[in-house]
Design a protein around this nucleic acid. Structure first.
Length: 189
DNA sequence: GCTAATCTAATCAGACACGGTCTGATTAGCCCATTAGC
């Protein structure tokens, strides 16, 4: 349960393509990511993750090698003016009430679904697994925020304590994510 | 050990209804996010 997706192993050729694209623009838009996905024969979401990780490593390297770029004259293209392309985002996914019903029910059962569960849900609602993953990320995030803002009434305090215990257990031990009922008024919509 | 996968938190931005809220998409992570497979 809660298993991870199996690791993607990029070939040398695939990496060449990705690295070249990264050097040109470390913040590719959706269209570019889709094109790259086709080119290296993988999913667009894997391309997104690869760029995320690459940027993180790149930042680390830049910190550990200060001013080297200036001397070598390399990597001048990764300067501050390169901001993510806001015009080239993926179009917003709009969920139907039945799709939301399925997702909310799944979230209530387990806010940290593994890859199998996510893929099953994706199949069920007819959307890519990556959208399910993002939906759960946003849902968890807003659940945390909402809980911090909850009114101070007694009942909700008690319920919060119970939920908090369940949630914290899972958060502290990633192998034991909470599966208890995490009721939330986020469902109001 | 390297790096793909995953996480939280913050932020941007579209949709709906007409100013603000909700929520999907994207990003950073800072003594340099953490976890875990190969």
């Amino acid at each position: 349960m809660n298993q991870r997706r199996s690791r993607t192993k990029f070939t040398e050729d695939q990496l060449k393509i990705l690295i070249k694209a990264f050097d040109q623009n470390p913040y590719p838009g959706y269209a570019t990511k889709q094109r790259l996905a086709l080119e290296v024969n993988t999913d667009e979401s894997r391309i997104q993750i690869w760029f995320q990780n690459r940027r993180a490593r790149h930042q680390c390297q830049k910190k550990s090698e200060p001013d080297e770029d200036l001397e070598s004259g390399q990597d001048q293209d990764h300067s501050e003016e390169e901001i993510p392309s806001r015009e080239d985002r993926r179009c917003r996914t709009s969920y139907s009430s039945s799709q939301l019903h399925i997702l909310i029910e799944a979230f209530t059962n387990n806010p940290y679904p593994g890859i199998d569960t996510r893929e099953q849900l994706a199949k069920e609602i007819g959307l890519p697994e990556s959208r399910v993953q993002i939906w759960f990320q946003n849902r968890r995030s807003r659940f945390h925020v909402q809980r911090k803002r909850e009114p101070d009434d007694q009942d909700s305090e008690q319920r919060q304590d119970q939920d908090q215990a369940l949630w914290d257990e899972g958060v502290q031990d990633p192998t034991n994510r909470p599966t208890g009922c995490l009721c939330t008024s986020l469902d109001s919509g």
